[in-house]
Simulated assay, not measured.
Amino acid sequence: MNIALPIITLVVGLIGGFFIGVFYLRKQMTRMQNDPEMLQKVAKQMGYNLNGKQMQRAQQMMKNQNFSGRGPAAGGKGSKRKS
């Protein structure tokens, strides 16, 4: 009992933390696709400087990704890619 309880608590904490992290990341991604300034900020942190056309393309790509957790994932039936 002295060993099992801390192990169970650790496992439950890790699983809970994972799901909270996924929820937070999805929330941030949906917020970012609606806020071009936030998207620009993230691009600059990654070392990219996006012009207006590139910004529109990035927003469109993010909207097509569907970060809400509902519907088909990217690359599924509805995705169209140019080669």
Results as ranks from 00 to 15, higher is better:
1 M>R: 10
1 M>T: 10
1 M>L: 11
1 M>P: 01
2 N>S: 14
3 I>G: 04
3 I>N: 11
3 I>K: 15
4 A>R: 12
4 A>P: 02
4 A>D: 12
4 A>Q: 14
5 L>A: 15
6 P>A: 12
6 P>L: 12
6 P>Q: 11
8 I>W: 13
8 I>L: 15
8 I>Y: 11
8 I>N: 09
9 T>F: 09
9 T>V: 12
10 L>R: 07
10 L>V: 10
10 L>M: 14
11 V>A: 12
11 V>L: 15
11 V>I: 15
12 V>G: 04
12 V>T: 14
13 G>F: 14
14 L>G: 12
14 L>A: 13
15 I>Q: 04
16 G>N: 08
17 G>T: 09
17 G>S: 04
18 F>A: 08
18 F>C: 07
18 F>D: 06
18 F>I: 05
20 I>F: 14
20 I>E: 03
22 V>E: 10
23 F>N: 06
23 F>A: 12
23 F>I: 05
23 F>E: 05
25 L>I: 02
26 R>K: 14
26 R>G: 00
26 R>E: 04
27 K>P: 01
27 K>M: 08
27 K>C: 01
27 K>E: 03
27 K>H: 12
28 Q>G: 00
28 Q>D: 04
29 M>S: 03
29 M>N: 07
29 M>V: 00
30 T>R: 06
30 T>N: 10
32 M>T: 09
32 M>K: 00
32 M>A: 04
33 Q>M: 11
33 Q>L: 10
33 Q>R: 13
33 Q>F: 01
34 N>H: 07
35 D>E: 13
35 D>M: 07
35 D>Y: 03
35 D>S: 08
36 P>Q: 06
36 P>C: 02
36 P>G: 03
38 M>P: 00
39 L>D: 05
39 L>A: 10
40 Q>A: 09
40 Q>H: 02
40 Q>V: 01
41 K>F: 08
41 K>R: 13
41 K>L: 10
41 K>A: 13
41 K>I: 00
42 V>G: 00
43 A>F: 00
43 A>M: 07
44 K>D: 08
44 K>G: 01
44 K>R: 15
45 Q>Y: 09
45 Q>N: 14
46 M>Y: 04
46 M>V: 00
48 Y>D: 06
50 L>A: 07
50 L>W: 05
51 N>G: 11
51 N>T: 02
52 G>S: 12
52 G>Y: 07
55 M>S: 03
56 Q>T: 04
56 Q>S: 03
57 R>T: 06
57 R>A: 11
57 R>L: 12
57 R>V: 02
58 A>C: 09
60 Q>W: 01
60 Q>M: 09
60 Q>P: 00
61 M>D: 01
61 M>C: 01
62 M>H: 01
62 M>W: 01
63 K>L: 08
64 N>F: 05
65 Q>S: 08
65 Q>W: 08
66 N>T: 06
67 F>M: 10
69 G>H: 04
70 R>I: 11
70 R>D: 13
71 G>C: 02
71 G>D: 05
71 G>R: 11
71 G>Y: 14
72 P>K: 12
73 A>M: 13
73 A>K: 15
74 A>P: 09
74 A>L: 15
75 G>P: 02
77 K>R: 11
78 G>R: 12
79 S>M: 10
79 S>W: 14
80 K>L: 14
81 R>F: 13
81 R>P: 00
82 K>R: 12
82 K>D: 06
83 S>K: 14
83 S>C: 05
